[in-house]
């Protein structure tokens, strides 16, 4: 049972000037007759891009968590903190809510995003028909919380700017924060390049869409 869609009706919309037009037949590239933008009925190479960015993010997720993100130099000696050691420090020093927040935003969110996007992409590829609505919601949540992962980067940034007392105390950003920022940006890009319409296409909910077409 398929629902009527624009594609099903042979229609395309220009993503730039919003002109609705009839789609050309055959494996050709449609061009908007009004503004000349290239028009796709779905995001092109959506799954491939998603996968590529996802894999990159996953690769960089490891060094982001292993390498130190911050070097604190004080008269008591230098200290290199990774994200996890920061969480552990917050936890042992009694700031449990803060520790939970940082753990959630910096460690679990990127990880969950990676896993969730991988799940979505896999489900589309396997033409899963199960609960497309729930999966679409999951995608929406992902898009929403993705930016919160930058919290850690902001903390380091603010500390570097604030704590600069020369010999007494000094905070420097370490390489880990770069990898971490990359992970966050890559996962955001990956979720952006994923086309949620594919969920419905693959579930066979949309008429006129070849299930193979991505």
């Amino acid at each position: 049972m398929s629902a009527p869609t624009a594609v099903g009706r042979g229609l395309l919309a220009c993503s730039v000037c919003e002109l609705v037009m009839r789609a050309p037949s055959g494996a050709t590239q449609a061009i908007c007759p009004r503004c000349g933008a290239r028009i796709h009925s779905r995001k092109p190479h959506s799954l491939a891009r998603t996968w590529a960015l996802l894999i990159s993010a996953a690769v960089l997720y490891l060094p982001a968590n292993i390498e130190p993100v911050m070097i604190t130099t004080s008269i008591f000696g230098a200290q290199r903190d990774t994200i996890l050691s920061g969480v552990a420090y917050l936890w042992t020093s009694g700031s449990w809510p803060l520790a939970v927040l940082v753990f959630f935003a910096s460690i679990s969110v990127p990880l969950l995003k990676l896993l969730a996007l991988a799940f979505l992409a896999t489900s589309v590829q396997r033409r899963s028909t199960r609960r497309p609505l729930a999966r679409t919601r999951l995608y929406r949540i992902l898009e929403f919380i993705g930016r919160w992962s930058m919290l850690d980067v902001f903390v380091v940034m603010v500390l570097v700017a604030l704590v600069n007392l020369q010999a007494l105390a000094n905070v420097q950003a370490a390489r880990g924060v770069l990898w971490f920022g990359c992970v966050v940006v890559l996962t955001m890009l990956a979720s952006m390049s994923f086309d949620p319409r594919l969920i419905w296409d693959a579930a066979g909910e949309n008429d006129g869409r070849d299930a193979r077409r991505t």
Binding site: L11, P24, G26, T28, P33, R34
Partner: peptide, 15 residues
């Protein structure tokens, strides 16, 4: 296309 009024819509250019 088998929409209700396809003729009213412009045809996309093709490259």
């Amino acid at each position: 296309p088998d929409g209700p009024e396809p003729g009213e819509l412009p045809q996309a250019r093709v490259v």
